[in-house]
């Protein structure tokens, strides 16, 4: 039986992975905000203490946070205010066409693409991590590949 990590230790253990995952979902500029919101918000949930697979729970938190990230203008305004008040963070350059290609995918499709092509997870593992069905993962993956194929074809 392993030693249970504190919340801070658990977060630090997965922080980089979560931030990379969030970058795939919302881009580098908003990734840190999404991770912050997700982790702090979801750890406030009474369910947190009952969670067994905390890594998966954190991934889902980031996933759902990213899903709702663009939904309300209030959220956006709040985010911009926080960004304005924060120390400037230098974000590495990423080609606009990359961001443009990803922006044409849904958040669900981005999540599946990132976990497939970056983390090398197969559909069952992705399904377990995100808490969705295996079939849903395969559908998102197929649609994402099809969409990206169109985009990449258009570029060439």
């Amino acid at each position: 039986m392993g030693v249970e990590l504190s919340d801070g230790e658990l977060y630090r253990k997965h922080a980089d992975d979560l931030t990379r995952f969030a970058t795939g979902l919302v881009g580098p500029a908003d990734a840190a905000d999404v991770v912050s919101e997700a982790v702090l918000g979801w750890l406030a949930s009474p369910r947190w203490a009952l969670v067994r697979d905390k890594r998966a729970y954190l991934y889902r938190a980031v996933y759902y946070e990213a899903t709702s990230f663009h939904r309300t203008s209030n959220r956006r305004r709040s985010r911009e205010e926080r960004t304005a008040s924060r120390d400037r963070v230098d974000v590495p350059d990423v080609r606009p066409e990359v961001l443009a290609a990803v922006s044409r995918l849904s958040v669900q499709q981005r999540a599946v693409i990132v976990l497939t092509y970056w983390d090398d997870l197969d559909p069952p593992a992705i399904a377990a991590l995100l808490g969705i069905s295996d079939g849903a993962v395969r559908r998102h993956l197929a649609r994402a590949r099809s969409r990206l194929k169109e985009i990449l074809d258009a570029d060439t």
């Binding site: 977060y11 969030a22 840190a32 009474p46 974000v91």
Partner: peptide, 24 residues
């Protein structure tokens, strides 16, 4: 494409709140 995007990830945010004891 995914690699280029992920490699642009910023540093993970520091969340000192999690070091406190009552985060529930």
């Amino acid at each position: 494409l995914v690699a280029e995007l992920i490699e642009s990830a910023p540093q993970a945010p520091v969340l000192p709140e999690l070091d406190w004891t009552d985060t529930e």
